[in-house]
């Protein structure tokens, strides 16, 4: 099976694993708000799973602290391929207000490859859904590239 078909199948059922890399919990609450009946992410086949082994998307919140750096890397390697990484919140994207902090190793993309950044402090649920749509678009553009190449 070629990559394009694989990615298409994946985009209909995205299971997300959420990892807190030193967040203040605001982004985590917004992720939960995305799953509530008002925004209902499940209608796109998105659901939260409890273990990285089941996940397709890694949702990383918070600026990466020195302490959790290795664990984030380990969780990233525990997710089976193919996988996407989505950073939720300004801290993880740019280190936010923690620029000068000695305890922060972030931003997240210094540790693991990131596909989509969702800025905001915290981002609204609409923004998180938009970020996942961006991830889909990335999948689709990969599909097109793949089709053009073959």
């Amino acid at each position: 099976m070629n990559t394009a078909k694989m990615l298409k199948k994946m985009s209909r059922s995205l299971w997300a694993f959420h990892i807190n890399a030193g967040s203040c919990n605001a982004c985590d609450i917004e992720i939960l708000a995305t799953l509530t009946p008002r925004y209902d992410a499940e209608r796109f086949g998105i659901k939260l799973v409890g273990t990285p082994r089941h996940a397709d998307i890694l949702l990383v919140t918070g600026t990466l602290t020195e302490k959790i750096r290795e664990n984030v890397l380990r969780v990233y390697h525990q997710v089976p391929d193919p996988k996407l990484v989505v950073v939720v919140g300004g801290c993880g994207s740019t280190k936010g207000v923690f620029q000068e902090s000695y305890a922060m190793a972030g931003p997240v993309d210094t540790c693991i490859p990131v596909d989509v950044y969702i800025p905001g402090c915290p981002p609204r649920p609409e923004a998180i859904i938009y970020g996942v749509v961006k991830a889909w678009l990335k999948i689709e553009s990969l599909e097109k590239d793949n089709a053009a190449a073959s």
Binding site: K9, W15, P37, R43, D81
Partner: peptide, 21 residues
């Protein structure tokens, strides 16, 4: 009072799991 996933969602999930590592 949600919309919910399509009726064939379990098939999609299964299809995806079959191609995952």
């Amino acid at each position: 009072s949600r919309v919910g996933p399509p009726l064939l969602q379990p098939f999609y999930d299964l299809e995806k799991l079959m191609i995952k590592q």
